[in-house]
Design a protein around this nucleic acid. Structure first.
Lengths: 245, 245
DNA sequence: TAGATTGTTAATCGATTAACAATC
DNA sequence: TAGATTGTTAATCGATTAACAATC
């Protein structure tokens, strides 16, 4: 019961008035990580379709473009609501916007970058994030030689200024682009100063209170997966290539 | 049958002499993407253990450190061979090296970086990759204003030099750090010039021959997953926080 | 209305966890 | 040998795919 999401939405509204709230919210099932991971890709394809003037699309057409099954698309979307219409399909613009809202892209986020090395500066310079609502409001480093240097008009501050900075600015996201051995301590400092979401590029598993959201980007792990596959491929084909005896 | 990996190894050796090869190799089951994704993490934890002088570890101890089940560790490892010993556990150094080999980290790779923007330059400057055997031998861009500029001693070349460059250098990996709309065309050019593995940072799905290995790093998708979770968390707790009527 | 396509339930597939016999 | 812990099979869980009734 309460599986239909329109129903859930209606119930949640009712729930906001009183007693049933908890019961109802417990019925709402957790969205799996796999589904969430696919949402940005849907969003990208819909954005492209929108740009090329496509008004509507069926799960079947989209499935061909994206090389996934139509079933998966419909299942994924129905975790969040009934965005389509029988006999018609999905309105591209509407669906695009709805997925954007689900992903939180209708909001803006103040971002600080902790670690102003190559990667930190590269991220600070990446203009597209700002277009999506992720605004860099501060850059921090431990290295005094960077003090006062500006990246995209934002001057690099020292890490010990973070507590003061956090008092005067609302930080929604902290990007961690520090060497591995500094990351854990810094993450704790950030959390102590009210940061509740960390985009972690340091090659370490942060152990933080569970209400702190951590999204990891482990570039070296990605590169290792690549080299694994290079060798897997070579192993497989080496075995076939030598001439038959 | 042929499930035991020692057995497979032995059979493969036999197979190299003749007729049974194909049959035997077909028995070897494909390693799932999920398993491969976990290997670098095992590698990291084993490296840390090695550094702190730990000689042996049981799947159970490791499972506690890594917050996964011991079953999963044993299953994952046994995809590649029996690296442990009953009653003893796993020898840290040996296992570390074996996983390194599986990941292809015992080899070196010539890497070129295509797209010398902020991210491309940051990656070129990232020293740790070289330590792991990934050596940047060339950096390319379309922007003539970058011509001759050096990053870590490597001068930036123009993209039309790639065919000539590829003739004289063996390129194992091409890193694609170009704007989205240039990436597809460039990937094709690279493949035409013999590149067989691409580390793709462009926010696009490359459609390439299936023997070309592509590993994607979609930073914007990662950021969207983060903002999804920020909002998920807030949705959930907003519903609980307003006072009871 | 008839045709198309969704939303949703049921079936299948694959990955994770549990259990235990093999063995160091 | 007894104890410990693996390698491996069996059970469970979750995610994907298929099927189809509901409905635009």
């Amino acid at each position: 019961m309460f599986r239909n999401k329109c129903c859930i939405a209606a119930m949640r509204k009712l729930a906001s008035y009183g007693v049933f709230r908890k019961v109802i919210l417990m019925e709402e099932k957790e969205i799996s990580r796999a589904v969430v991971k696919r949402l940005p890709r849907y969003y990208r394809y819909l954005g492209d379709l929108l740009e090329s003037g496509v008004e509507r699309i069926s799960s079947n057409e989209l499935s061909e473009k994206m090389q996934v099954t139509a079933s998966q698309i419909r299942q994924d979307l129905n975790n969040f609501g009934g965005f389509g219409q029988q006999g018609y399909g999905y309105n591209v613009k509407y669906l695009y916007n709805e997925i954007g809202k689900i992903l939180g892209l209708d909001k803006t986020y103040n971002v600080i970058i902790v670690g102003a090395g190559n990667l930190g500066q590269a991220l600070a310079n990446y203009v597209k994030f700002e277009k999506r609502g992720f605004k860099v409001i501060g850059i921090f480093d431990v290295n005094p030689s960077l003090l006062g240097k500006k990246v995209r008009g934002i001057e690099i501050r020292m890490i010990d200024e973070i507590p003061e900075f956090a008092k005067h600015n609302e930080i929604q996201i902290a990007t961690l682009t520090l060497p591995r051995h500094q990351a854990a301590e810094m993450a704790e400092l950030l959390v102590k100063n009210g940061v509740r979401a960390i985009w972690n590029f340091a090659h370490i598993d942060l152990r933080l209170p569970e209400d702190v959201i951590v999204e990891n980007v482990h570039l070296s792990e990605s590169l290792m997966q690549l080299s694994y596959n290079i060798n897997r491929y070579e192993r497989e084909h080496m075995a076939e290539s030598p001439k038959e005896d």
